[in-house]
Amino acid sequence: MGKTHEEICTYLSELFPDAGLEYDDAVPCINVPPALIREIALQVRDDAELAFDTLMCLSGVDFGDGTLGVVYHLDSMSLRQKLTLKVTIPVAEACVPTVERVWRIAEWHEREAYDLVGIVFQGHGDLRRILLPEDWEGHPLRKDYQVQEFYNGMKVPY
């Protein structure tokens, strides 16, 4: 099997000494500052030691304590290792750079995270709602989400 999260964190910290990468033992995952996620993503994809060629899943999460998160589950087919990256942002500034160009699949996953959790991905080429109607109000997977009363004249709560 490939590297553990701890080894990857140490390895990345050497490449990005100022980034302030944190290894979270409980999950395990690596906490990445939002501004650097794109560079780190490119690094872990192209680095021969890491080679995370697949983004298994990209999830938007509302942690319920005033922060939102984006969780990247990565997988390396060639090296048989997995990696979880986590970006945490305050609700007020729900903005994360896109990784759409790094893994093409991120395009739809980011649209979904935008649609359901309300995270804006900077630089995304086509950031529209994907599952809900274009004119829906709010982001349902926020913990403080209130269903809108009417949608186009139709009563929503039943």
Binding site: M56, C57, V61, I105, E107, W108, L141
Partner: peptide, 19 residues
């Protein structure tokens, strides 16, 4: 569950159709 996200294969596979 606090959060349950599903990564559906159909969803992901479909995204390649335009390409």
């Amino acid at each position: 569950p606090f959060r349950l996200k599903v990564r559906g294969p159909s969803f992901v596979n479909l995204s390649v159709i335009d390409e």
